[in-house]
Design a binder for these strands. Sequence first.
DNA 1: CCACAGCATGAAAACGTTGCCATCAGCCCC
DNA 2: GGGGCTGATGGCAACGTTTTCATGCTGTGG
Lengths: 333, 333
Amino acid sequence: MRDVAQHAGVSLSTVSRVLRGAPGVAPQVRQRVQDSADELSYVVSRNASGLVTGRTGRVAVVAPTLRPWFFGGVLAGLGDALGAADLDMLVYQVGEVRSRRGWTRALPLRRNADAVVTVSMDLSEEECRRLDDVGVPMVLTGQKVSGRASVFIDDREGAAAATRHLLNLGHTRIAYIGSRTPEWFSGSARDRLAGHRAAMAGAGLEPWSLVRSPDQEGGELAMGELLSAAEPPTAVLAEFDGIAMGAHRTLRRSGVPVPGAISLMGFDNHDAASVLDLTTVDQSPYDTGLAAGRLAVDILAGTARPDTHIEMPTQIILRHSTAAPRGARGLSS
Amino acid sequence: MRDVAQHAGVSLSTVSRVLRGAPGVAPQVRQRVQDSADELSYVVSRNASGLVTGRTGRVAVVAPTLRPWFFGGVLAGLGDALGAADLDMLVYQVGEVRSRRGWTRALPLRRNADAVVTVSMDLSEEECRRLDDVGVPMVLTGQKVSGRASVFIDDREGAAAATRHLLNLGHTRIAYIGSRTPEWFSGSARDRLAGHRAAMAGAGLEPWSLVRSPDQEGGELAMGELLSAAEPPTAVLAEFDGIAMGAHRTLRRSGVPVPGAISLMGFDNHDAASVLDLTTVDQSPYDTGLAAGRLAVDILAGTARPDTHIEMPTQIILRHSTAAPRGARGLSS
DNA sequence: CCACAGCATGAAAACGTTGCCATCAGCCCC
DNA sequence: GGGGCTGATGGCAACGTTTTCATGCTGTGG
């Protein structure tokens, strides 16, 4: 910066003003400084400016993992929203050791980010409070916590709608394949199961749910089990597309026609759902990320309240993996 | 930090030494300072320390987009590798406007990151040179540029091996579906096509390749075209799994059995490839990211040369979408 | 018993910016 | 024509660290 000042023949203060776009600089001088900066291809160090302003120009994004397709979409949305506000995006993967190191890892954020966005972290109340200690605004995605900025979908209603779709087609023997890890039953897994159960209860039917590992294999195994039941289901709703894909695989291998003998439905609208012609509940991770990013920006700007809740829409995507059960003549009503 | 010093009853210097793990502090004092820091849940500001050391503790990751599954894997690997070295990961999406803003966006990195990792950016020589101006070490992934640290797979050989697999099964009418956007023919697209052509030439066969848009739809359309040829192919190799999935969809809709009538092969081992039982060429984006992250760390530490090349392995994953053509009795030899 | 080495510790400068205050010039109005 | 106002500009302290250098203390060898 000193070099630029010298090159333009002005003081440090003036260069700083120009580069910050602050007022109080003659247009002519402003231009000259701008040119000098460009010529020396100079950019301000966020480090130094952050030191004095207290703002870092960075937003931390915390996710349990980055591998699944879902997170790429969210990150893309976040990146676009934050980039538009000239904020940089710091990405942290806290991994499965969250219970032990989770809050420790949160600390490095302390004065190194202006805001924190969590992605599908499924934080407990206590963890939320611990993050509050970091002292920066926080936006949660994938979960809804009262009093805190959240961007989420209505998992409960999504699963209920999916179930109603199957019910309306005339199915009565409907099974649900859910997931949980040995130590973790995620909030969205809980909500989807609850939504399914509520819809079943609404139709006066007994729920029939299996819980397996949250991956394709879980779906494969669960479907195998369902196929060997005394009276197999005529429709299956999976907690998410990955499970549905596993189930689909078992069905294909067993020669069970979909939707001929069994209707299959997923949740999330995974990239590959269209390949399998899988009926599913669509949600857009990109839009979720975009909304969360914008919310973070607005909270920082003071134009949004730090307890804003944004519900993202879900929508049933009808493809060809669901149909009326054999022998039915249409809507059950 | 001052608070910690006061709390522990020592000077700022000592606190700094302890927190940096620098030698020259009595074990007893070290412990006391550590405890104070923990109690006040204090962490150093990377901003301030970077200001004086010149190191930012951050590595910038630049990708054209973050949406596709591939990038999530790379980011996960990078995050793990960088996190292990206590480096933070800054993620930038430069988008499709790369031609215009590409080098402009590179500038903000100037003194805000210790190293730059590009992911599948397919940089030209000139763009590389422009990035050199940033003045920090740079690691390229998804492309091989001599004289610069690169992590890549051998796309050419992967495609050649895939082609040989089909040849060995006895196929002779093999089509290749490649991709390009109106303005962009990526390096890996070029290499895979070249590898396929070389293998075909090695077998004394004429290549038969189509080029479409780089998505499922491109695959669907191309497959439609192939099916209406005078003599359709008995095997199809797609540049990547997304295209193969599109092709698979067309085949399914047309009632063409796979691999009964047509063998289909992809590239990349997409999450969903296993669902379709698609034979494909495996590469691990996670491992690529991990290797690139470690390489960046090593270059920063001075233990790796900044022109190191790392070739990641590819491997053919045999599933059930490829088989000998009808009427063949086995290996062609 | 003295000199000196070696180690633990503290003091202060420096890093690159911003923000406040002072200065200065030009202008308007009385 | 002078006083006060406005707007442009420069000087300087401060931000929170690291790093260098100085200082004091302890133990050791001559």
